[in-house]
Amino acid sequence: MTPVNIRLREWRDNDAPAVLHAFQSPDLRHQSPWPVVTLQDAVGWIASWAGAGHAFAVTVDGQVAGNVAVAGIDAHDNGWVSYWVVPAFRGRGVATAATGELARWAFAERGLYRLELGHRTTNPASCRVATKAGFRPEGIERGKLCYEGVRYDVERHARLATDR
């Protein structure tokens, strides 16, 4: 089910309370390179995207529901995609719609050719988002991530500008 009124927009400093709230979810804590536990941390997270890539607030009916981003853009017109959605908006197609919209933007507006993403193999919901957004699986990267001393395999997906 695709949500109505989904929109991608630039992050704003006044979105900091929504960012802080999002990172209170245990499964989102690893989506930031540092702990986001104060409003100042959340403002810093928003500011950290300047020059690092293109991050967009995902909104549903004007309310912040998540984030989609493309970063790590290289000289070969490749970029790395990431996404997250707060628990209250999960299961409604928000991540899939936002990731698909980000890909269309990255190909048309940014001129990228290849977009990559990865998810832990223990996260089937993220795998569904990737495949439904047109990212094809390309293989398993063994032991790539380590959270709290536990190693996780990652499945890599990619979408090309020429994919239909």
Score class of each variant (00 low, 15 high):
79 G>M: 07
72 G>T: 11
81 V>T: 05
75 A>E: 13
115 L>I: 03
66 G>S: 07
110 R>A: 11
86 V>H: 01
81 V>A: 04
102 L>E: 01
69 A>M: 12
63 Q>Y: 11
90 R>S: 03
97 A>L: 15
69 A>L: 13
106 A>I: 06
75 A>N: 11
110 R>E: 08
66 G>F: 09
81 V>L: 00
91 G>I: 11
102 L>P: 03
109 E>Q: 13
111 G>Y: 07
93 G>M: 11
97 A>F: 09
104 R>M: 04
109 E>L: 00
99 T>S: 10
66 G>T: 09
75 A>Y: 05
109 E>I: 00
71 A>S: 15
84 W>H: 01
110 R>C: 01
66 G>Q: 08
94 V>A: 11
65 A>D: 06
92 R>C: 07
110 R>I: 02
66 G>R: 12
77 D>M: 13
113 Y>E: 04
76 H>M: 07
89 F>G: 00
113 Y>N: 06
73 I>W: 04
100 G>P: 06
107 F>K: 03
87 P>F: 02
73 I>Y: 03
105 W>I: 11
74 D>H: 12
100 G>L: 05
86 V>G: 06
112 L>W: 06
116 E>W: 02
86 V>E: 07
95 A>Y: 06
116 E>L: 02
111 G>W: 06
83 Y>F: 15
101 E>W: 05
89 F>D: 01
106 A>F: 05
72 G>Q: 14
69 A>G: 05
92 R>F: 06
93 G>L: 09
63 Q>F: 11
95 A>D: 08
101 E>D: 13
66 G>D: 05
94 V>N: 10
94 V>P: 07
72 G>L: 08
70 V>A: 10
70 V>I: 13
87 P>R: 03
103 A>N: 07
84 W>C: 00
115 L>E: 03
85 V>C: 04
68 V>I: 12
98 A>T: 14
63 Q>W: 07
84 W>T: 01
80 W>I: 12
101 E>M: 15
63 Q>S: 15
80 W>F: 14
104 R>C: 03
81 V>C: 14
96 T>G: 04
112 L>D: 04
76 H>L: 12
91 G>P: 07
100 G>T: 13
66 G>H: 12
108 A>C: 00
111 G>D: 05
72 G>N: 15
71 A>K: 15
100 G>D: 06
116 E>P: 00
107 F>G: 01
90 R>N: 02
81 V>Y: 00
94 V>G: 09
63 Q>D: 15
72 G>S: 14
70 V>W: 11
79 G>N: 08
112 L>Q: 05
103 A>K: 07
92 R>P: 01
64 V>F: 15
87 P>A: 04
80 W>C: 07
112 L>T: 04
93 G>Q: 09
90 R>I: 03
116 E>Q: 09
